[in-house]
């Protein structure tokens, strides 16, 4: 009996392999192997071009964590991620509830808010770089028109405001995506629960706090974890809008990593930054998933 099961399993494994084999092979060759190479290169001083290089141990890690530039990139990445994820989720929950309560044009608005999602981040970036340009931009034009000229800003050029502008653009592009997930989540809340809540005399605020928000927990888990991973890896928008500038004001880990790997020809340094990014993302998303899953309730 046991032996028969064993050979049966073996046969199934063989059949399975014939199905996933090609995918597994390219995955190992083009994702796992290069990722391992990055770990290895992070311990060298390779410039990415020459044939010779030395193994320098953890010197790259010591360098990036003692230099100001990388720490600044870590700080920027953290600020962008926390602000983006927090604000976009809060806005998306409210927008989803508002849309759900709308009588007319629900699907029209849903499509309008979702449209930025189908556009390339590069396209969205240049749209906003026009909107926010100092002399010819729409925003400053409108401020002038409203006689609010003193509120005019160099939205993407002033080191004091550029971070806010960038986070705003990221939220603008992502909002529709999260809103749709929350909208789907809202449909899973049984009507009877809301009725019962009303009969108990709960006001709108307490209805939201005690019923809707806890039941949106699965959506929150998905959106916060996914949003964090995507936010940490933001590259296109920053590259197109500011290139990490002015100065290094908006340089993130990914932007710095790409710079080190390409223009600066420091493969070792770039690799060590990539490794740090990977470990940080893995830890943060695992801890968050665990914590947020605990908050999900069964009903």
């Amino acid at each position: 009996m046991h032996a028969k099961n064993f050979s049966q399993n073996k046969k199934l494994n063989l059949i399975s392999f014939s199905f996933y084999g090609p995918a597994l092979l390219v995955y190992i060759l083009f994702t796992i192997l290069p990722a391992c190479f990055s770990f290895y290169y992070s311990l060298t001083d390779w410039n990415g071009i020459s044939k010779e290089y030395n193994i320098v141990g953890i010197q790259n890690y010591i360098d990036i964590f003692t230099g100001e530039r990388f720490l600044n990139a870590v700080k920027n990445t953290t600020i962008i991620t926390i602000a983006n994820v927090a604000i976009v989720n809060i806005c998306a929950i409210f927008l989803a509830i508002a849309l759900d309560n709308l009588r007319r044009a629900k699907s029209f608005y849903r499509s309008v808010f979702f449209t930025p999602q189908v556009l390339s981040p590069i396209i969205v970036s240049y749209m906003w770089s026009y909107m926010m340009s100092y002399s010819s931009g729409i925003i400053n034009n409108i401020l002038d028109f409203l006689k609010l000229g003193n509120l005019k800003q160099d939205w993407l050029g002033d080191p004091k405001v550029v971070m806010y502008s960038l986070i705003f653009i990221l939220i603008w592009q992502g909002l529709g995506f999260y809103m749709v997930i929350y909208l789907a989540n809202l449909q899973t809340i049984p009507n009877e629960l809301i009725e019962a809540c009303k009969i108990d005399g709960a006001g709108r605020v307490s209805q939201f706090k005690n019923l809707i928000l806890p039941l949106l927990a699965p959506g929150v888990t998905t959106c916060v974890v996914l949003g964090t991973i995507m936010s940490v890896n933001t590259f296109d928008q920053i590259q197109a809008l500011t290139g990490g500038g002015p100065g290094f004001r908006t340089e993130t880990i990914v932007v710095s990593m790409v710079y080190e790997a390409t223009r600066a020809s420091r493969q070792g340094v770039a690799s060590s930054q990539a490794v740090v990014l990977f470990i940080a993302t893995a830890i943060v998303s695992l801890v968050m998933t665990k914590y947020l899953r605990k908050r999900e309730v069964e009903y």
Partner: peptide, 16 residues
């Protein structure tokens, strides 16, 4: 693989 940042593999993949 879903969790591996594409940058981590991409910068070395180009060398391969």
């Amino acid at each position: 693989g879903i969790m591996i940042p594409s940058g981590l593999s991409l910068i070395s993949l180009i060398k391969i």
